[in-house]
Simulated scan of single mutants.
Amino acid sequence: MKKKLPPLNWLRSFEATARHLNITQAAAELNQTQAAISQQIKGLESQLGTPLFNRLPRGLSMTEAGKAYLPVVHECIRRLRTATDEIFGQDKTRLLTIRSNLVFFTLWLAPRFARFRERYPHVGLRFSSHIWADNFNRESDMEICYGQGAWPGMAADRLTWDELIPVCSPAMSNGLQVPRTPQDLAEHTLLHVIGYEDGWGHWLDHSGYPDLQFRNQLQFDTLISALQVARYGDGIALGRSSLVSEMISKGELIAPFNQGVKTSEAFYLVRPANQYIHPHAEIFRTWIVEEATKGN
């Protein structure tokens, strides 16, 4: 039958007393009375069913059981103390938790993140990701979401002012040529991303081709997947200018025609309104809004 795990206070009293072989010194270290230390050690010995110390006329010595038990107890307490200090020490602040739209983090935030770390090395961050966020995650301090900017009970800072831009690989697959006019899209596979209000239909309507028919279409739940398929020449994606500019500058994608259409949707930094938030939240907010304004 397994022994019940002793209380932590009993183990701490045993470990300190074993190190000092002196109850008075152990009591001073743990800020307890000698009587309390003695009682906890007796309780531990009673629960374990064996003495851990030999009580001598002029001090203590350890029994064989005590000697065998001490290294394990000492290591457990040391690791617990180290972990507590690392995570909750006085000079530690809980990590600022930011839940970000996946494509925004990958294509917009990650390339700029080194500048934040260089400027604010003391700010600890924890990132999680989502594709489409319906509700604010209570475990997050702030979120980066896509939409019209109106979320009940939330304050939002706009981060992007996008145009919709058709993008594709410089070399298409299946022997197809890069489209030169919007009419050429009829011969290509259009890559749709579900979840956006403004998609291919919006772009075609505002570009003067509302009735254009297509040979093939594919659907994705995130823009990053559609852009990767486009990058390998297997279709035409509708990029957001803030997200595809770097891929275009690197030559990974091209914009075959100069017809961008503005969209009312955007990425926003969202946080609870009129509520306490993490002390480093304002630092991150100020920085990312500055980056967004610079990019715009």
Rank of each mutant, 00 (worst) to 15 (best):
Q148H: 13
F127L: 14
P111C: 09
H122Q: 15
I131P: 00
E143S: 14
G153C: 06
W151I: 11
S128D: 10
I131M: 07
S129W: 10
E143Y: 09
Q148Y: 14
G149A: 05
G153Q: 03
R115P: 00
M154K: 07
G149Y: 04
P111F: 01
P111T: 06
L125Y: 02
R117N: 05
D157G: 00
L125A: 07
G149V: 10
A133P: 08
W151N: 01
S129D: 01
G153A: 04
R126S: 15
S128K: 07
D157M: 01
F116G: 12
F116K: 13
F136G: 04
P111A: 05
G153R: 00
A150N: 14
Y146H: 15
F127M: 14
S128A: 10
W161C: 08
T160Q: 10
D134H: 13
C145T: 15
A133W: 01
D162C: 08
S140Q: 04
F127N: 12
W132T: 14
I144P: 04
A155R: 11
N135M: 11
P111S: 05
R158V: 03
G153L: 05
R138I: 08
G149Q: 02
F127W: 15
C145M: 13
Y120P: 00
A133Q: 15
S140V: 11
S129T: 13
R119N: 13
Q148S: 14
G149D: 07
C145G: 11
D162Q: 07
Y146Q: 08
R112K: 13
H130A: 04
Q148C: 11
W151Q: 05
I144Q: 06
A114L: 05
G153N: 04
F116E: 02
N135W: 09
W132C: 08
D162W: 07
P152D: 05
R115Q: 08
Q148R: 14
A133L: 15
L159R: 08
M142N: 06
L159F: 00
A133K: 11
F136A: 02
E118N: 12
S128L: 10
E118W: 04
D141G: 11
T160L: 04
D141C: 08
Y146I: 11
H122E: 15
N137Q: 11
W151Y: 13
N137T: 12
R126A: 14
I131G: 10
N135F: 14
E118C: 03
A155M: 10
E143T: 12
R115C: 00
Y120G: 01
G153M: 04
M154L: 10
S140F: 03
M154G: 03
H130G: 09
R158I: 01
R117D: 03
S129L: 14
S128C: 08
S128I: 09
P121W: 03
H122F: 08
D134R: 12
G147N: 07
W132S: 12
F136W: 04
Y146G: 02
L159V: 09
P121A: 03
I131S: 10
P121K: 09
V123Y: 02
R119D: 10
F136C: 02
A155N: 10
F113P: 07
A156W: 00
A156L: 14
S129C: 07
R158D: 00
Y146A: 08
P121D: 11
S128W: 00
Y146V: 05
E139P: 02
F136T: 00
C145V: 15
E118A: 13
W161P: 01
D162G: 11
G147Q: 06
R126P: 05
